[in-house]
């Protein structure tokens, strides 16, 4: 039996994974929300009406309206069966369809994450390559120091410092909000610097490794110029771990997005997830967690494909 095209099998595998992730994320986030202490009806009423209007009567209204008296198994089954029909329900707090909220917020978060990754690549690749070409040199040591410093500063503090410098002192960029491209720069830079602080070291390490490898020596011996060796062999080999590492950074991004979105008043999904958890908005939490889980799967798929395209050995496997 001939095996399927490797790319096709990657898609199939990740598709199956997506389905499993969806069910597990749904059930786990539901269970965790149920396990939290405190009465959900009170928390939801608090999120809806604010503390000036929130009282026991409001909580009872919420309990009856949302059917929170039902057994948890009934609530879970009704969520899962709605999900099977691609219905994420309505936000328990705001009454708006979850899918609308996520669509808006995810767009903004992806924009921010994209900006951050772009900035991190723009910074990390040249810095890493230069540092890696002369390991142990002055540039290598300097960039290591700066990287440690940047990674050690919490993104919240870094964001405020950047705002003070670029928005308040120099008046070049806006402080917060999201009216145009200029609003994207500071939050992306805040996240991007944190990402680049680590990824430039990954670039540097793979450059060092590639430079010391036998295949590099071979390509030089067979007569390729230093420049051709660099572009055809070193970059290709060095980029494999870097591409894989971009995927790993997703975790840092999601964590960072939550904080950076709050500092810059950015209407993203991380910020929304925190609010949803605090307000016990189970529908929003499940919808958001599901979306993030599926993005992970999608990202892994992209990385699989990218690695296969970069590395000819994987293509033939």
């Amino acid at each position: 039996m001939t095996s399927a095209h490797p790319l096709f099998s990657a898609f199939l595998q990740r598709g199956l994974q997506a389905l499993i992730v969806a069910v597990i994320v749904g059930v786990v986030s539901f269970t965790m929300m149920q396990a939290l202490p405190g009465d959900a009806a009170y928390r939801i009423a608090a999120g809806r009406y604010g503390y000036d209007m929130m009282d026991a009567a409001a909580a009872e209204t919420v309990r009856n309206e949302l059917g929170l008296n039902q057994h948890w198994s009934i609530q879970l089954i009704s969520w899962l069966s709605a999900l099977a029909q691609f219905d994420l329900g309505r936000s328990l707090v705001y009454g708006t369809p979850v899918v609308d909220e996520i669509a808006t917020q995810l767009g903004y978060s992806l924009l921010l994450a994209g900006g951050a990754v772009l900035i991190s690549i723009i910074i990390a690749v040249p810095v890493g390559v230069v540092a890696g070409l002369k390991p142990g040199g002055a540039i290598d040591r300097l960039t290591l120091g700066v990287s440690i410093l940047l990674r050690a500063i919490p993104s919240f503090a870094l964001g405020v410092v950047l705002v003070l410098v670029f928005a308040v002192q120099m008046r070049l960029l806006p402080v917060a909000g999201f009216r145009g491209l200029e609003h994207l720069i500071l939050p992306s830079l805040t996240l991007g610097l944190g990402l680049a602080a680590v990824s430039n070291r990954v670039v540097r390490d793979s450059v060092v490794e590639a430079l010391g490898s036998e295949w590099r020596l071979f390509s030089r011996t067979k007569g390729l110029s230093a420049r051709r060796t660099a572009t055809r062999h070193i970059l290709r080999n060095a980029s494999l771990p870097v591409v894989t590492y971009v995927g790993v950074q997703m975790a840092y991004l999601i964590e960072g997005v939550v904080i950076v979105e709050a500092v810059f008043a950015w209407p993203g999904i991380g910020h929304a997830l925190v609010h949803a958890i605090f307000n016990r908005d189970i529908a929003m939490v499940q919808g958001t967690a599901l979306t993030l889980g599926l993005i992970y799967v999608l990202l892994n798929l992209f990385i699989d494909v990218a690695c296969r395209l970069i590395d000819p050995r994987m293509r033939s496997q």
């Binding site: 405020v160 705002v163 003070l164 928005a167 308040v168 008046r171 806006p174 402080v175 917060a176 909000g177 709050a262 500092v263 810059f264 008043a265």
Partner: peptide, 19 residues
């Protein structure tokens, strides 16, 4: 109207003239 939950951000918005 811009909702900004962090007091630091709001003060910076005022100082920079963005709000």
């Amino acid at each position: 109207y811009l909702a900004s939950g962090r007091a630091e951000t709001r003060a910076l918005l005022a100082e920079s003239g963005d709000a």
